[in-house]
């Protein structure tokens, strides 16, 4: 097997051993479709911040672990972040700040909809000022 070649990058997988193909259908979620849409808008005129091969190069530059463990649109999202910074469209600092803000906001609200479905009166928890729930995981 060619898997021992040290310099081969994780995307270059033709011929690698792998399990059966999971042929289940999957309708792209709204998040996935939004990432797809944004990536097209950023790449196409009039913006044309980058070209397809720059997008590919960015995805190929993910660590082997990230490449392996991330879904297709997860990789696209990480690439979008890198390219926006690389091209000077957004700064790393402002993305990080916004990311923390979004995460805190949604960590509070995570309790909301599930309780609302079973116990409608729990709607007040949406206004809760409780601290954002700490979630495991690393910053993007």
């Amino acid at each position: 097997m060619a898997t021992t070649e040290p310099t081969r990058k994780p995307h270059d997988m033709g011929g690698d051993p792998a399990g059966p193909v999971d042929t289940h259908e999957h309708t792209p979620t709204l998040v996935e479709r939004r990432i797809d849409a944004m990536m097209q808008l950023l790449r196409q005129k009039p913006r044309a911040f980058w070209v397809t091969d720059e997008n590919r190069r960015t995805i190929e530059s993910l660590t082997p672990e990230t490449y392996r463990d991330s879904s297709y649109y997860q990789k696209w999202c990480l690439a979008m972040r890198s390219l926006l910074v690389e091209k000077g469209v957004l700064t790393d600092a402002e993305i990080q700040t916004k990311f923390e803000e979004v995460k805190a906001r949604h960590s509070v609200q995570v309790e909301g909809p599930s309780k609302r479905q079973s116990k409608p009166k729990a709607k007040s928890s949406m206004k809760s000022k409780s601290a954002p729930r700490k979630k495991k995981g690393t910053s993007p």
Binding site: A2, E5, T7, R8, D12, G14, G15, D53, R57
Partner: peptide, 13 residues
């Protein structure tokens, strides 16, 4: 060749 950068020639070929 085995260049470090982005290439479109798969290793298996």
């Amino acid at each position: 060749d085995n260049p470090a950068g982005h290439v479109r020639t798969p290793t298996y070929l």
